[in-house]
Computed example of a mutant assay.
Amino acid sequence: MNRQPLVSRRRFASGAALAAASLALPSLRAQSRLEKTKIALAVGGKAAFYYLPLTISEQLGYFKAEGLDVEISDFAGGSRALQAVVGGSADVCSGAFEHTINLQAKNQMFQAFVLQGRAPQIAFGVSTKNMAGYKSIADLKGKKIGVSAPGSSTNMMANLVLSRGGLKASDVSFIGVGTAAGALTALRSGQIDAICNIDPVMTMLEQKGEVKIISDTRTLKGTIDVFGGPMPAACLYAPVAFIQKNPNTCQALANAIVHGLKWLQTAGPGDIIKTVPEGYLLGDRALYLASFNKVRDSIALDGIIPDDGARTALKALASFDPSIKADKIDLAKTYTNVFARRAKDRFKA
């Protein structure tokens, strides 16, 4: 007797839901009409935690969910990835925010449009074998320092640390060692005397007692100690002309990254292990998870680039790089939060 009204109520409810969905769909479709669906994205050291949001968004299918076919090319360091975009073989770079400032100083206009990291996650350590008697920065004069790639953010931080200790970049030799197994080998075999790199590499060396950390930006507190304020790190950035020509595509990219950031807010260590490729663990799950716990609070929450962070980046670069004149840089043109804000609202990040 009561079954028919129940079915009718169910049909009405599902019909109402369908009607609501059909009303919402046109606006969604309008937003997602992408100017470009196939995107070539360059990154330098994808296996590092620095780029974990990119890996999560890729592995969980968030780019595909936005209608994007993203082909990711991995390079030895951020400067190499940047060269791919400048040279035209890639559309977008996943790399350090400060590159947008460096590029503007060379009259090349690039803009960051979604943040992945709110701290650089870079640590500088000296070899406990090659430099057992290390006392101060002055001891690094004439030494070989491993960085992900010359000109990358690891190189920039090393320059900053050296300058504060009274040394110039020309006082040392920088060696590109990548951000994975090659970096571990270079330090362990004695090819380099010190290393400025990212996790999980640095935590692995630190926990085995192979390096003594002398400067650390893997936490928000450490970043403020080194830079004097918040320092935006990994982001997606592209030529301004590309962003202006492909706003819906950039929105889709920002959506995918912020979706990944939202997932990371509640993900446990086990979730990370299941999601990242096995090769990223560098053969040691326990140390990989120890590294994740160390850098967790440096992962961005909502993709938005803080204004004071951009100012910190400019101040830091200008302090050791004479080619960057702070008063000549228009910081407002190095980033936009238009896309990240929309993505944040959509995913409640």
Score class of each variant (00 low, 15 high):
R9H: 10
P26Q: 06
P26S: 03
R29A: 14
A30C: 08
L34W: 05
L34M: 08
G45D: 08
F49V: 10
I56C: 09
I56S: 07
S57I: 10
K64Y: 09
S73T: 15
F75R: 13
A76D: 08
G77C: 03
L82G: 12
S94G: 15
L103N: 03
L103S: 04
A105T: 00
N107W: 09
Q108L: 15
Q111R: 15
F113K: 07
V114S: 06
G117A: 15
Q121T: 13
I122Q: 05
T128Y: 05
K129L: 12
Y134A: 00
I137S: 03
K141E: 10
K143R: 04
K144R: 08
P150L: 05
G151L: 01
R164I: 00
V177Y: 05
G178Q: 00
G182P: 04
G190C: 05
P200W: 01
P200Q: 05
K208P: 04
G209H: 06
I213T: 03
G222H: 10
D225E: 15
P232H: 02
L236H: 05
P247W: 09
W263K: 15
G268V: 08
Y280D: 15
Y280G: 10
L287Y: 04
I304N: 00
I305R: 01
D308I: 10
A310Y: 00
A316R: 02
D330W: 01
K333R: 13
A340F: 00
D345T: 12
K348I: 11
